[in-house]
Design a protein around this nucleic acid. Structure first.
Lengths: 153, 153
DNA sequence: TTTGGTGCAAATTCTTTGCATCTCT
DNA sequence: AGAGATGCAAAGAATTTGCACCAAA
């Protein structure tokens, strides 16, 4: 984790065709695709690419701050070509992730830095809800069963 | 799996020995164990229990609001016997999760409910940092490579 | 009794890796 | 040239599930 600015022990990022196309495809959409979805998007342009390469590149690109990893509620990891700080809502039914029009948020970290013993690096915040599409559908079997689920709020 | 309060279509939760012991063990600790760790804790009392049963019960218990699921940063799911609302810090190095002495937090949801199209159910918030133990150790190989990582803050 | 629960093992899903071969810079 | 990247396939880790038998209520 760190810095391009201060780490000169690293070679520069090599821009292979695969890497360029992955980055390009990811920047074209706002759908926060999973690795597999990206694989399929990229495959239209580079039929021979492998899923492993997609995973490796997503890891490298996010490691370099060129894309953003969105990992949370137990489901498949998603990626975001938009690196600016912003927040997401995840649909508990279909897993879809959307951006939130939330400009600023209170500095949560300050409240935490006091005596918890950890060196706080940041926080991850994600809203959960039901997307417009799923809102129209009846509840899933699992939801009917679930009285409470992961505690939220 | 389900309702006690408002859903009368469901049978009440049957308290099997396995379920009772899992709940009991989980309530004894504050370490936010993973399913596998819970499996090992429970096994000391019920040597014949299977991991599948542990998973099934953790799912049912959290579905009934009797325990809390903590799922986030891509690593193994963890469980918390403390159902009261509180927040966690996760160590980015060792994955350990601790409670945070954070009393209240601003009502984040209000800011979001406006036009995002979702029916907001809540949010999940987790702090990330380096725990006291890991703070003493040198960086991992992975950390040295990672110039940025999942965007946070 | 009867309905849900259990143990076991196999199956899934998502992600990572070893290795021989290529290819950017 | 040579570090780093790729494709392929196999390996992993975490979690879920089918099924025949068992046990709470």
């Amino acid at each position: 984790m760190n810095k391009k600015s201060r780490d000169n022990s690293k070679s520069p990022l090599r821009m292979t065709r695969q890497r360029r196309v992955i980055l390009d495809e990811l920047r074209k959409v706002t759908s926060h695709p999973t690795a597999d979805e990206i694989y399929n998007m990229v495959r239209r342009r580079l039929p021979g690419i492998s899923l492993g390469t997609v995973y490796r590149n997503l890891e490298i690109l996010s490691g370099n701050g060129m894309i953003q990893k969105i990992e949370s509620s137990g489901s498949a990891r998603r990626y975001d070509g938009n690196v600016k700080i912003h927040y997401h809502v995840r649909c508990v039914r279909c897993g879809r992730v959307d951006d939130l029009p939330l400009s600023t948020l209170p500095v949560l970290e300050r409240a935490v830095r006091k005596g918890c013993g950890y060196e706080i690096l940041g926080y991850s915040l994600e809203f959960v809800g039901i997307c417009p599409n799923c809102g129209k559908l009846p509840k899933t079997k699992k939801e009917r069963q679930d009285k409470n689920g992961t505690q939220r709020k």
